[in-house]
Design a protein around this nucleic acid. Structure first.
Length: 453
RNA sequence: GUGAUUAUAGCUCAGUUGGUUAGAGCGCUGGAUUGUGGUUCCAGAGGUCGCCGGUUCGAACCCGGUUAGUCACCCCA
């Protein structure tokens, strides 16, 4: 049979996995230093935990797991005969694959509330699954790296998460722009424009600003039944770049003023001037997710920097505050704030900018090559010693023709090979060959170990 | 869910208006070279042209259907 992969999934080779774990370990190191702890949740959740949390669209994108055993025996007969898939699901599937890390986190917090010290700071790096049509940079299986704190309203966390973004990207070597806005400011705009009930429609439109431009946003809003007068007001406010200037506009909106106050507070804890990256208030930042209620964040590659001017990539991270994260599971008044790192996109950007370290500590350092059965046995004893000395080493499994063994060494990109035949066994001096330079020298095993260490 | 596009060797892809035996590069195997790889040179293996049907004297090529991938939209990371 011809091997194939399910749509929207991919394999990761050794090289890619090594690079990805470089990103993860860099991120983790920072999370841990800021006091965040790791958790993991199961790949599968009960379908009842997942459905209804991501809107109608989201429900369609959930992967459902078929019940084990004779699942049709218990199927809802009426729905089955009517071919009503939506109605049938609950009788043939009780589990689904994780769609994001936030909802499982909320469930986790509620279930373990008695064992958790609040504020609870956690990070989580796991794959999630979405039954979306795949396209460029978009898959059905992908990793999310989430860092959240739940159980506190303090704006120090908004400041702290901004610092985490700043520090992680500085460590990875990507210069970014960290954009911050506040949902209350967006609510204020909607209020001032007299369309408080259409705030979601407005934010969805504003969110597309860099993609479709100002005129596009106007059209988008018009198509969503927002009046011309309101659009005028909204566009006018969007031109304002500083918080102070907004205050005048928001005299009639308590919500808007509250948003400004929150932003100012965050900036008293975190001074953008101290940041390694650009950090700025961006009134046009909206983010589609409707559950955000306070600050919202988004990170983009700074294409104003000469070395990064050709990078075309959407946001590589985002997040925000949600006032009632756990309410749906019966735990009220639990405010949370968190951000996410787009691992796959960060990977692509680093690849393009050549930011991964050249020296790979996980790679093979030396390969043993023997000429005959006798020297193969001898070489294996040497190999054991080299490995015991902490050097990544391997032996070609059979003493076959030199050419074949050397070709394998090339394919593995191993920097050195050790050749062992009759003369080496007699003298005790092994032939150490530098695969890059092409030269070789006769050295004792101990000298080789010292040299390769 | 809507639309576009692609499917030919292990991989990446050519293949003329429909015409005899479907090609190239890379990779693989063997040799030039029995203890030395990368660069050369020679030879070889490897194909149900996605699948089903139709048109035709004749189909990789035209038509219909189908399956799968990719890309864009909706939405999202």
């Amino acid at each position: 049979m011809k091997p194939s992969l399910p749509k929207g999934t991919r394999d990761f080779g050794p090289n890619e996995v090594n690079k990805r774990s470089f990103i993860f370990s860099t991120i983790k190191e920072v999370f841990v230093r800021y006091g965040y702890q790791p958790i993991e949740t199961p790949t599968m959740e009960n379908l009842s935990t997942l459905t209804g949390k991501y809107g109608e669209e989201g429900d369609k994108l959930l992967f459902k797991v078929l019940n084990n055993g004779d699942y049709l025996a218990k199927a809802n007969e009426e729905a089955l005969n009517a071919k009503d898939s939506v109605k049938l699901i609950s009788s043939i599937s009780k589990r689904g694959l994780r769609y994001d890390l936030t909802v499982p986190f909320a469930r986790f917090v509620v279930m373990h509330q008695n064992d958790i010290a609040f504020p609870f700071k956690r990070y989580q790096i796991q794959p999630v699954w979405r039954a979306d049509r795949p396209q460029k940079g978009r898959y059905q299986e992908f990793y999310q790296c989430d860092v959240d704190v739940v159980g506190s309203n303090s704006l120090t966390y908004e400041a702290e998460l901004t610092q985490i973004y700043d520090e992680v990207f500085a460590k990875l070597g990507i210069e970014v722009i960290i954009k911050i806005n506040n949902r209350k400011i967006l609510a204020g705009i909607a209020e001032v424009a007299g369309i408080a009930d259409k705030m979601v429609e407005m934010t969805v439109a504003i969110d597309k600003l860099d993609k479709i431009g100002l005129d596009g946003v106007k059209k988008e809003m018009a198509s969503r039944d927002i009046s011309d007068a309101s659009i005028e007001t909204i566009i006018e406010i969007l031109q304002i770049e500083d918080l102070a200037g907004l205050k005048d506009k928001f005299q009639s909106s308590e919500m808007g003023l509250k948003g400004i106050e929150e932003m100012e507070k965050v900036f008293t804890y975190f001074k953008p001037a101290d940041a390694k990256n650009k950090v700025k208030f961006d009134i046009t930042l909206a983010r589609g997710l409707s559950y955000y209620t306070g600050c919202i964040f988004e990170v983009a590659v700074d294409t104003g920097i000469e070395s990064q001017k050709d990078v075309v990539m959407g946001s590589i991270g985002g997040g925000g505050r949600y006032d009632d994260l756990t309410g749906i599971f019966g735990m009220k008044d639990m405010s949370g704030v968190g951000v996410s790192f787009g691992a796959a996109r960060i990977f692509d950007v680093m690849e393009e900018l050549n930011l991964f370290p050249q020296e790979d500590e996980n790679s093979l350092k030396v390969l043993f090559i023997a000429f005959d059965d006798q020297s193969h046995e001898y070489a294996f004893q040497c190999l054991t010693k080299v490995r015991a000395a902490g050097i990544n080493a391997e032996i070609y499994p059979d003493p076959v023709k030199l050419k074949k063994q050397m070709k394998y060494a090339n394919a593995r990109q191993v920097p050195h090979v050790i050749l062992i035949g009759d003369s080496e066994m007699e003298s005790g001096n092994l032939t150490l060959k530098d695969m890059k330079e092409g030269g070789q020298e006769a050295l004792s095993l101990d000298d080789i170990i010292t040299k390769l260490k």
